[in-house]
């Protein structure tokens, strides 16, 4: 089975600084695999293991900063076989429509593909739209909220956890599946996995033609934070727990 995982690389939000002017400074942020895409990679690796004789290809599109050797090894240390990366400032911060177009171009270039797995939503926008836009671009069906995947001949049987119901669906392949974090717990790669990852095929390329923007970003700001008292005590200090209890009582 040929399995593709679409992954987004984002600045690690732990490293994002808020400037005095209330702007977000990401210049010191490490490049990281978007949190829920880790579950998508793991789901792909598990599906490949279950199906046997499979290839897992990771496809990612982003700015030139994502061409980071530690990050690339991290991606490939999680059960994927090969990486296709578009790292080009022309491809930074694309909207869902343009991202899907760029991913589709890469996926079609890889050749045969039975299933594309996407994460639940990216850590930055969490729009949950690239999966469906990508499916539309590839002309294949898609479902989201997937928590179980089973290969079933020319179809995938998927269980989806939605707001109020659990649906079991049959999706003809090729198809796009967006998985919920529940689908699989990401592995923690060991030293060996990381060393092996460095030897796996990596195709790093510039962007081809990028689709025109469909959405314009006007402003990014940190929200105003509420003023808090910040009265923090060590629980071992005399009377700390009693004072905390008293403060709770007063606030009730």
């Amino acid at each position: 089975m040929n399995i593709v995982v679409a992954v987004k690389v984002v600045p690690d939000d732990q490293d994002i600084q808020v400037t005095a002017a209330g702007e977000l400074d990401m210049s010191k942020a490490h490049q990281a695999i978007s949190a829920y895409d880790l579950n998508a990679i793991e789901a792909a690796a598990q599906l490949a293991a279950a199906a046997g004789d499979s290839t897992v290809s990771v496809v990612t599109v982003g700015g030139s900063a994502i061409d980071d050797s530690k990050l690339k090894k991290n991606i490939l240390a999680r059960g994927a076989d090969q990486l296709f990366m578009v790292a080009d400032d022309a491809a930074a911060d694309l909207d869902a429509h343009a991202t899907a177009a760029a991913l589709a171009e890469k996926i079609q270039a890889i050749g045969a593909c039975d299933v594309v797995i996407c994460g639940d939503g990216s850590a930055d926008n969490y729009a949950q739209q690239v999966d469906v836009q990508l499916a539309a671009k590839l002309g294949v069906p898609s479902v989201n909220g997937v928590v179980k995947i089973e290969a079933n001949g020319a179809a995938i049987t998927a269980e989806r956890k939605l707001e109020d119901v659990v649906e079991v669906v049959e999706v003809p392949t090729p198809c796009v599946l967006a998985v919920s974090p529940d689908v699989a717990l990401p592995r923690i790669p060991g030293m060996k996995d990381i060393l092996k990852a460095g030897k796996k095929p990596m195709d790093i390329a510039g962007a081809g033609e990028i689709a025109a923007a469909t959405v314009k970003t006007i402003e990014v700001k940190a929200p105003e934070a509420a003023e808090r008292k910040l009265d923090v005590k060590d629980a071992a200090d005399d009377g700390a727990i009693e004072a905390f209890a008293a403060a709770i009582k007063a606030a009730l």
């Binding site: 939000d13 930055d124 469909t214 959405v215 940190a222």
Partner: peptide
């Protein structure tokens, strides 16, 4: 919209 889960807020407009 929220950005990075609330680290920021982003204003966007369709083109």
């Amino acid at each position: 919209e929220m950005y990075f889960g609330g680290v920021g807020q982003v204003k966007r407009q369709a083109e």
